[in-house]
Design a protein around this nucleic acid. Structure first.
Length: 193
DNA sequence: AAAGGAGGCAACCGCAGCGAC
DNA sequence: TGTCGCTGCGGTTGCCTCCTT
């Protein structure tokens, strides 16, 4: 049985006070991020490390862009979600100043509903991808039948059809459904995606 | 003005991944 | 190679605010 990350009975829960925020911010400014387990004690906070990390990452980080999502951001989220699914951290990584929590909440509260109103099933990534990836003039990557050229890599295919994504996702290969969708059976699997 | 409902968001929980030993 | 501990991620919950009746 793994030990809990902290002694729950000795820690605060719920909303953070201004003083707690200040303590956490000051500590991280001085010592940098990391060592979340030992941070609360060192910073004089009655919180568990996880809670401190979450508060910093989702709320206190200075590079966060607060406020409403723009139309371009929304569009990007939809496209990335169609490609990546619920991998919020990866999606957030493509949106400077946005956190995974923020993107997740925005998806669940705004975009999901919007798509449903448009008659699109938000969890049906195949249908979403199909709507995004329309027939276009991509002669460098696709032939006249709109099939990927044998020489085109998976990342070329996706980046050409979704040029604004600037995908440099080196972590995981795309799911089989995406590979099938864009007819990649003949392309190399050196994914950049 | 008050009550109830819906929406939005911050925070928590549990699990998985990864590195150290 | 297996175990342990830490960190990060995604799902979920709960609280607060706003809107409607």
């Amino acid at each position: 049985m793994r030990k809990p990350c902290c002694e729950k009975k000795e820690t605060n829960k719920g909303a953070w006070s201004k003083l707690e925020d200040q303590k956490l911010t000051d500590y991280i400014r001085k010592h940098g991020e990391g060592c979340w387990r030992s941070l609360p004690q060192a910073a004089g906070l009655l919180r568990c490390g996880k809670s401190c990390r979450l508060r910093w990452v989702n709320y206190l980080r200075p590079d966060l862009k607060r406020g409403n999502f723009g139309e371009d951001e929304e569009e990007l989220i939809i496209k990335l979600h169609a490609l990546l699914g619920n991998r919020w951290s990866l999606i957030a990584g493509r949106l400077p100043g946005r956190t995974d929590n923020e993107v997740k909440n925005y998806w669940n509260t705004h975009i999901k509903r919007k798509l449903l109103q448009m008659g699109i099933e938000p969890n049906n990534r195949r249908s979403l991808l199909s709507r995004i990836i329309t027939k276009s003039n991509f002669s460098n990557v696709f032939n006249s039948d709109n099939q990927p050229l044998k020489s085109a890599s998976a990342s070329e295919v996706i980046c050409t059809r979704l040029p604004d994504l600037n995908l440099d996702l080196t972590i995981a290969p795309p799911l089989m459904e995406e590979k099938q969708l864009i007819n990649l059976e003949s392309t190399q699997v050196g994914y950049n995606v």
